[in-house]
């Protein structure tokens, strides 16, 4: 057996000090764990408001969620990075943006008083908050996605509406999804995924994690790169428990 080539990837965690509310750090932990298990050196760069950063030089982008106050805090900085991020994502840069990060990768977020936070239009969608009296979308989620079954937990006030032609990340089997109406969840453009799911998302969905790693490796090292499989029994058990929990609670709720 020949020694596999030494691969190195750089992940950029956008606004880790600001958008970090629902255990989204777990996504970084999972990427690192699954890279290290295969001898892939993963460098994680934290980029926050005001930091210099060229998306063309990184291999994966991640961003998490935040409260409304926190989204406002990053809005201007994110706007300034918009053209470079869009260009890199059009060129195949893998990205995973969750909740608040997902909303701001669309065209705009309209809060319950009609205030608008502009997004960067990576995804063709907008998010509106239906007002303080509307229930938040909170609970377990099971999705069917092109990468298979994905499990997670959602907790969002805003309702996201995809423009015609914008692909979702998945279809809701259990849970609310983008807007509790049309059965879509998240969005996918090229290799960028936006979603409301935390849990954290990547640890319990190892196939998705590997897909992001593989997309990043192929983009940098060529289309022949493969990923050796890992044992994954702990990941599969946690995934199965989350799916069982979602089914049980969904039955209990009628």
């Amino acid at each position: 057996m020949s020694t596999p080539p030494a691969y190195a990837l750089t992940a950029v965690h956008l606004y880790p000090d600001i958008l970090n509310i629902y255990g989204d750090r777990g996504n970084i932990i999972a990427l690192r764990y699954r890279c290290e298990a295969r001898g892939i050196a993963l460098q994680v760069r934290e980029v926050t408001v005001g930091d210099a950063f060229d998306p063309a030089e990184c291999d994966i982008i991640l961003a998490g969620g935040g409260q409304d106050r926190e989204q406002r805090r990053i809005a201007d900085d994110l706007q300034a990075r918009g053209p470079a991020l869009r260009a890199a994502i059009d060129g195949g840069l893998p990205a995973l943006v969750v909740c608040g990060g997902f909303q701001l990768f669309g065209h705009r977020y309209v809060d319950h008083q009609g205030g608008v936070i502009p997004g960067i239009s990576v995804f063709d969608l907008e998010t509106r908050h239906p007002g303080p009296r509307a229930d938040r979308c909170i609970g377990d989620v099971i999705l069917d996605t092109p990468e298979g079954e994905v499990v997670g937990f959602e907790n969002h006030g805003g309702r996201t509406y995809l423009a015609p032609g914008q692909a979702p990340f998945g279809r809701v089997r259990r849970g609310f999804g983008n807007n509790a109406e049309d059965g879509t969840e998240g969005a996918r453009t090229a290799n960028a995924i936006g979603t409301y799911l935390h849990g954290s998302l990547l640890p319990k969905n190892p196939a998705l994690t590997d897909e992001l790693i593989l997309l990043a490796l192929r983009r940098r090292y060529g289309p022949d790169v493969t990923l050796p499989p890992l044992a994954d029994d702990a990941e599969r058990a946690a995934h199965a428990t989350a799916a069982r929990t979602a089914e049980r609670r969904s039955r209990a709720a009628g």
């Binding site: 777990g26 932990i29 999972a30 764990y33 640890p203 319990k204 702990a234 946690a238 989350a242």
Partner: peptide, 22 residues
């Protein structure tokens, strides 16, 4: 616990030894 499997995964990813039992 109800979510022992989630906990075991978290500990594995934190660099703890494999859980004796879940």
């Amino acid at each position: 616990g109800d979510r022992a499997e989630d906990m075991a995964l978290r500990l594995t990813y934190a660099g703890w030894p494999r859980c004796d039992s879940v």
